Structures are given as C-alpha cells and as structure tokens.
Amino acid sequence: MAHDHTDVQAFFGTRAAGWDTRFPDDGPAFARAVADLGLRAGDAVLDAGCGTGRALTPLRRAVGPAGHVVGVDVTPAMLEAAQRAGRHGEALLILADVARLPLLTESLDAVLAAGLIAHLPEPEANLRELARVVRPGGLLALFHPIGRAALAARQGRVLTGDDQRAESRLRPLLAAAGWQLSRYVDESDRFLALAVRRG
C-alpha cells in the first residue's frame, strides 16, 4: 500500500537547509545513542529516517571501514543537505520509505531511528519492516535528543499517556512488531528505547 508522503516531505523539505543550525548541540546526544547500540567493527547498520545525517559520522566510526552504514530518508531535500555536509562519504544514502526498505531480510545488525516514530504512518507495520531487515538478536534504538516532556513543552503540547513513546504504549507496540524492549530512558536531555530483534 502506497503512502502519501507529501506532508512529511513538505514539513522536512522546507526545514532541511537550516536543520543542523537549528539544533547545533545535538551532536553528543547522537554519539551517545550510537554508543548505546554497542556496534562492533564490521557491523552493518541502518539510520532509518536519517534526515541530514547527523548520526552517520558516529555510526561510521563505530563500525569502522569494514562496516556498512546505510542512511534512508523519504525527503530528497534532507538527503541533499546530508550530501552538502559531506556525509555521503560516511554512508550509502538512499531515497526510500521506511515502510518498504530496499534492503535484504536479516541483512543488518542494528537500526538507529532518531525522531522517527512520531512520523510513522502505520507504526506497527513500519516497525515490523525494520525488524525484517535486522538479524535475530540485532538491536533497534528509537532515539530523540530531548526527552518526551521537554519535546512536548517545545511544541506547546501537554504530555499525556496517549503519547506513542510512553513506555506502556511502546512496549506492546514493539512486541507486536517482533521487538523486545530492553532499555527505556526518558530524561530531559534524551529519549532512548532500545529493543532486541526476537528470533
């Protein structure tokens, strides 16, 4: 089933050029999220919804020259911004939808998805597609450089239990898609849900 991505593309397309300058201090948070994945030299990793590619450099450092880093995004302007920043040297950048990844089944060791979950049109199906491309025992990191409450405040929202990233909602959602939540961190300066691909 095809999705209409015009809204997501319009939102991120108009913001792509200035994205890195709007959030200049997120670098250490991205590096820490990559460290939490515990990648080894030679691993294959996907940055799902990679945007301007801020995670690609720490991902490349983690897997080394023998590893594979793939960045996928649905917004052409974001990938163009990643290239302008020189990040195409760190990863293979692919214009694609995370709902239909052009990747082989069980071909990856890990997936990093920064700020992605709020933009998934069909969260369970989309998380299942991420599970498809990861080997059993591989990891998924759902990450955001600020916590849920801080993000809600920034967006002028009140945080409710309906929030998709609330642990009580996220755990069963991940389980239904083939993942087991292993770690959940929601602090003012970061959000991280780490899940293991079930065999």
Rank of each mutant, 00 (worst) to 15 (best):
M1C: 14
T6G: 09
T6M: 09
D7G: 06
D7F: 13
Q9K: 15
D20L: 04
D26Y: 10
F30M: 14
L37T: 12
G38H: 15
L39T: 13
R40H: 13
L46S: 11
T52P: 08
G53K: 08
A55Y: 04
T57W: 10
P65R: 13
G67N: 14
H68T: 15
D73I: 11
D73C: 13
V74S: 15
V74F: 11
P76H: 15
A77R: 15
A81N: 09
R87N: 02
G89M: 06
A91F: 05
A91M: 05
L92Y: 07
I94Y: 02
A96W: 01
V98H: 05
R100W: 08
E106R: 05
G115S: 07
L116Q: 02
L120H: 07
P123D: 04
L130A: 04
A131M: 05
A131K: 06
R132W: 12
V133Q: 08
L142E: 03
G147P: 01
G147A: 02
A149N: 00
A150I: 01
L151C: 00
A152F: 11
A153P: 01
R154K: 01
Q155E: 03
G156F: 01
R157W: 02
G161Y: 00
D162I: 01
D163R: 00
Q164L: 02
Q164M: 00
R165E: 02
R169F: 02
L170F: 08
P172N: 01
L174I: 08
A176H: 06
A177H: 04
S182Q: 12
V185L: 12
D189L: 09
D189G: 12
R190F: 04
V196S: 08
